[in-house]
């Protein structure tokens, strides 16, 4: 039953959808993006072949030093660890994701209001620091390393999982004394960036092979759910945005 369902769901592809709906309304062709989605005579019976596993050109560093990368990889793996459900942050490429994000607009806070004067505010007024996200990572990772060396006498990435958790928890609970930034603020940034790396489209370098989505049965980018919206839960084979480029 489950298998049968699965096969049926896979037919809810963009192509099938296009064929079924025909994209006309009351005899009028509906313009816009739809026309451009119609396959142009390509053989679309073949699903997208997976990229060769051993040659992911995306997995190189745009911003981090090798040490920063190692710490980030170790720390995010504790936030979202590998377990019976599937891969953790490390195997999903989350540290590459964060590295790539820091290299661009997000790392520079390009679309945030960063004008002076800077005053400390109430918590409900939000972030009021002058540090950009890449500065926060530079300082935060260094402080994570310093604290690990002070408390555990080792670099963060060399500590055991339990020890790493304790270090991270101390940051989360502001038990570390820092003058330049809020330890919990850094931890929250690291945590939210980890979830982004686990669950964003693989085009950004994380969620490798869509494994983040597969673990929670998230179908990624599908053109239509009109045929399943009234039905009970169904597993649908996930698709990434790359699949749209075939059309």
């Amino acid at each position: 039953m489950a298998e049968e369902n699965k096969e049926k769901q896979e037919t809810l592809s963009r192509r099938r959808f296009l064929r079924n709906t025909g994209f006309t309304v009351g005899g009028l062709a509906v313009g816009g993006i739809l026309g451009s989605l119609v396959p142009r005579g390509k053989d679309d019976n073949k699903n997208n072949p997976p990229a060769p596993q051993d040659q992911d050109f995306n997995q190189a560093l745009m911003y981090f030093t090798p040490e920063q990368f190692r710490i980030t990889e170790a720390a995010t793996e504790r936030i979202f660890p590998e377990d019976d459900n599937g891969p953790g942050a490390k195997a999903l490429g989350v540290a590459y994701f964060i590295d790539h994000q820091l290299a661009g607009d997000w790392g520079f806070n390009a679309r945030d209001y960063m004008q002076s004067p800077f005053f400390p505010g109430e918590k409900v007024q939000g972030y009021q620091g002058r540090l950009k996200r890449r500065d926060i990572f530079d300082i935060g990772l260094r402080e994570l390393q310093n604290y690990s060396n002070t408390v555990g006498k080792k670099n963060f990435e060399e500590l055991s999982g339990d020890e790493q958790d304790k270090i991270l928890k101390d940051f989360e609970e502001d038990k570390v004394n820092l003058t330049t930034l809020s330890p919990s603020g850094f931890f929250q940034l690291l945590r939210s960036a980890t979830l982004e790396g686990v669950y964003s489209d693989p085009l950004y370098g994380g969620n490798k092979n869509m494994d983040g989505w597969k673990m929670r049965n998230y179908p990624g980018s599908q053109m239509a759910y009109a045929e399943i919206i009234e039905k009970d839960f169904q597993k649908i084979k996930p698709q990434s945005l790359q699949s749209h480029m075939k059309h």
């Binding site: 313009g31 816009g32 993006i33 451009s36 989605l37 607009d105 997000w106 806070n109 390009a110 679309r111 945030d112 209001y113 960063m114 982004e196 669950y199 964003s200 489209d201 085009l203 950004y204 990624g220 980018s221 599908q222 945005l241 749209h244």
Partner: peptide, 28 residues
Amino acid sequence: KTEDYFMVHDELRYALRYDLFQDLSKET
């Protein structure tokens, strides 16, 4: 225009990086 949304099923870009929203660096 509608054609802009070819790659719209992108949670990171639109929901977390606020692609369609006012650029706060200019005005908030």
